[in-house]
């Protein structure tokens, strides 16, 4: 079992007291499995992703990722998990604007001490980024930026890739291309993929779909 989420709950402070976002979530994923998290706006699907990725802390519950209980880790431990075990692809602002494409792709892998220039080069080629390696994020199109984010997530050889609307800012054709490439590459590495999306079409391409409504899985 790669990921086991039990009784996960999370609320955010609101004007009239805490607003519960996740009430009680149980979820499990196997290594290499792909999962789509769907739901209405505000249903809490991104929050699950953030909690699993160690980007945020849960109010209660348990998240076992690769044998580590994320809810018991401190800031430093969660940062180490993010670095070593998780690859992330978000809807926007994935990249570090001050670094060029090559450095962006290599960044997390080098942080994790797992940098392999050949593998990185192969990834860039597979994603059609070889001509862009010396460019800066602001010089790239949206599709190219997301490809760089995918390359970076894969370069670290994570146990799980967390993608939050990775194609949300892209037009339909580009979105299809990017998704195809991502799925193909993820399949090749054996990493699990948890993707948040509101698109039924995208969700259908995952092996499993779970739907979130008012903070609980249906």
């Amino acid at each position: 079992m790669l990921l086991s989420v039990k009784a996960l709950a999370k609320s955010y402070p609101g004007a009239d007291g805490p607003v519960p976002v996740l009430r009680h979530v149980d979820l499990a994923m196997q290594a290499g499995e792909t999962l789509a998290l769907t739901g209405e706006s505000g249903s809490g699907k991104s929050t699950i992703l953030h909690l699993v990725g160690g980007l945020d802390t849960a109010d209660s519950g348990e998240i076992l990722l690769d044998g580590h209980d994320m809810t018991r880790l401190d800031d430093k431990g969660r940062a180490a998990m993010r670095r070593d075990a998780v690859g992330i692809v978000f809807q926007q602002f994935n990249l570090i604007p001050s670094l060029d494409v090559a450095a962006n792709i290599a960044f997390q892998a080098r942080l994790a001490g797992r940098y392999d220039p050949h593998a990185t080069q192969d990834l860039a080629e597979a994603l059609g980024l070889t001509a862009q390696m010396a460019k800066y994020p602001e010089q790239l199109s949206g599709g190219q930026q997301q490809r760089v984010a995918i390359a970076r997530a894969l370069a670290v050889r994570p146990r799980i890739i967390l993608a939050d609307e990775p194609t949300g800012n892209l037009d339909e054709t580009t979105a299809e291309d990017v998704l195809d490439q991502m799925l193909a590459l993820v399949a090749g590495t054996g990493a699990a993929l948890m993707m948040v999306t509101h698109s039924r079409g995208l969700a259908a391409r995952m092996e499993r779909q779970v739907h979130l409504r008012q903070g609980t899985l249906e």
């Binding site: 990725g53 980007l55 800031d75 430093k76 940062a79 180490a80 993010r82 670095r83 070593d84 992330i88 978000f90 602002f93 994935n94 990249l95 570090i96 604007p97 001050s98 960044f107 997390q108 942080l111 994790a112 970076r152």
Partner: peptide, 16 residues
Amino acid sequence: LPQLAPAWALGLTRRR
């Protein structure tokens, strides 16, 4: 924040 958030997300602590 947009400049720092990716670095944080990728594994640098806020303290760091």
